[in-house]
Each structure stands twice: as C-alpha cells, then as structure tokens.
Write a protein that binds this DNA or RNA. Structure first.
Length: 309
DNA sequence: GCTAGTATCTCGCGTACACT
DNA sequence: AGTGTACGCGAGATACTAGC
C-alpha cells in the first residue's frame, strides 16, 4: 500500500559533497566480484549481503543493523542489482531509500549508486548523484503527486498486517533511467535474468542459489568444472548467443557441486577489472576463493593525499 | 548467558497490465 | 493474442529482546 510522503522537499539544492578517495574506489570497483566477500563476511548475511560486501570492499565497517552506512557521514552508498532486458538495456527493481521516519531528501543529497550484475554479482559501473538543479525539481514533484494514481518517482510503501510493518521510502526503478544513472541504450555487459528458471532451480536444491561457471571453450557441449574437475554439460551455442544457459553437472560430483544447480556464462560479458587479474575475476564469479585468499578492494586503491573536500 | 519469540530487513516472485 | 514490464506483497534471512 502506498502512502503520501512524510517529509517536505527541501526546495533548495543539497550542498555538493564529494570525495576523491571514494571516486577512485568506485572507478576501481568496476569488474569487482562481490560473491566471495558476501560469502566470507559473517556480518554480510541475508538479503543485503552483497551491499554489505561492497561496503567492506570500500574499506567501511559492516555494521550489523545499518545495511548502508554513509561514507564519512557525507555520501550514501547504494548497491543496485541489474540485469539485461530482452533488448539489451539494463533493468533493476525499485530501490529502498530509508525507513519512513528518516528524511529521504537528506539521504539522497549525495549518493553513489553502484550497479552489479544480478547473475554474476560483478560490479558493472557506478554513478554519483547530487540532488540539485532540475534533478531535484523533478524528484520534488513526488510531493504533490497522488501516490497511487500518479506515478511518483519517490513514494512511501507500507503493507497491511496485524500491526502494520515499518513503511519505507522507495525510488521507482524507472527513475534511475530517467535521470541517466542507468544507460537507456543496450549494453554489452551483464546477463539476462530468467526469474522462473532461477526459482525452479533454487527449489530443486533446497533454496540454494545455482553455482556459476564461465565457459572455457566456445563449442561442444561439455566444459570442465573448475571447482571439482568434473564436467558440466550445457548448450554452448546458447551460452554465447544469450549469455548463459543452464548446465547439468555430470559425475563425479565433488564437494559443493553436488548440492547446487549450475549455470554456464559467457565470460565476454564481464567487465575487465583494473584491480584484479582475469583469474581473480573468474575465481570470484565461480565461488572458489578460499577465505585466506579473499582480497579487499580498499587494500589495492591507494588513498590520495588530498580527498578534495 | 542462552534461547525462543518477535521485529525488521530487502529481495524478487507472480500476476495484472500495457504495449505491439 | 502474445510478449514484456511494473508493482504489490510474500519469502527468507538476520537482528533484537525479553524471560529464564
């Protein structure tokens, strides 16, 4: 159920907050696989685990109850899961801003949006958002719009329940595209997402996500499993045409491979990483980074002497 | 300190709707 | 009629808390 906004728009531009250190980290995050950190961090569990993994990679503490702590109390960091539509343009779901008791205008004043592919969990890119000028005016129109009959870019959503649950501010998914934060043209990077296949494969394997393997050869029907040296049977023509295809793990099944569904991806749709080798990217996507080899983005990006604030 | 029950977090599925 | 998309709301997970 949608409710009217509780916080009146500021009607003035937010002060610009930037940080050279965060800009360097964000640029370096392109091509970063989030899976290993999400798997390894005790504090990064549940739905927000990849967002927590990103925070950790940027050098922040992963707080237990605050899923997205601000950067130096100045810049909000939001991880957005994206996937390709049929036509190759990127799509995302609606974004939670904050709970309805918190002022969303302050939260959105300066925000770093980081986009990660939903299937591979690899960072594809980022955009900084500053609530100012026409962007601010467009978002502030939500204040006067009917939350149900109009389509406001910012809304409060609640739900019916015995005691009611905490309502929260959400940004409409289309808002990111409208503001040019997500590109509106087809892209080369990322994968399509088939929700019904995903659901059925998870149901088959007790709710566990399928394991991802990157195709090593470009023809035939078999590819080597990099985790257990068994074989994966898939349709490689489909992998390279559509970006991915379901796979069947043939015997022998080693370790974790037995308990999970499998999918093979076309590695050419992954971005090149400036901070990691191809091998590090591959093993990150394929869930074969042991805890002692887990590396942190912040350790590879030198902190500049001047943060330029 | 431990445990069971409650609260709260996004995520993302399923379906209704919009568009071709 | 068929296909793709948006939105409502349920799911699954963890964090918190009260009581022992």
């Amino acid at each position: 159920m949608r409710l009217p906004l509780r916080h009146r728009p500021p009607q003035r531009d937010a002060p610009l907050r930037r940080c050279r250190h965060l800009e360097l980290l964000a640029e370096a995050a392109r091509g970063l696989p989030l899976g290993p950190a999400a798997e390894a961090l005790a504090a990064a569990r549940g739905r927000g685990r990849h967002g927590n993994a990103l925070q950790w990679h940027l050098g922040l503490d992963v707080h237990d109850s605050v899923p997205t702590p601000d950067w130096e109390d100045r810049i909000e960091i939001k991880l957005i899961s994206v996937w390709q539509r049929a036509d190759g343009r990127l799509k995302c779901d609606r974004i939670k801003v904050c709970e309805a008791s918190v002022n969303p205008w302050r939260k959105l004043g300066n925000t770093l949006f980081v986009f990660a592919d939903r299937l591979s969990r690899v960072v594809l890119g980022h955009r900084f958002f500053h609530l100012a000028g026409q962007r601010r005016v467009r978002l502030e129109r939500a204040w006067d719009q009917d939350p149900h009959f109009d389509r406001p870019p910012l809304m409060i959503e609640s739900r019916d329940g015995p005691d009611g649950m905490a309502p929260a501010y959400y940004l409409a998914a289309w808002w990111l595209t409208q503001e040019g934060l997500l590109p509106d043209q087809p892209v080369e990077l990322g994968y399509r997402f088939d929700a019904s296949w995903w659901r059925s494969i998870r149901a088959e394997f007790s709710g566990r996500d399928p394991l991802v393997t990157l195709a090593r050869t470009d023809d035939g029907a078999l590819t080597i499993c990099p985790r257990c040296r068994g074989q994966l049977r898939t349709d490689l023509a489909e992998v390279f045409e559509k970006g991915w295809a379901p796979a069947i793990h043939t015997m022998p099944l080693g370790g974790m491979c037995a308990l999970r569904g499998h999918v093979v991806l076309d590695p050419r749709r992954l971005p090149k990483s400036s901070c990691a080798t191809d091998e590090e990217l591959f093993e990150g996507v394929e869930a074969r980074v042991p805890p002692d080899r887990l590396w942190r983005l912040a350790d590879r990006v030198p902190e500049p002497a001047d943060h330029e604030h």
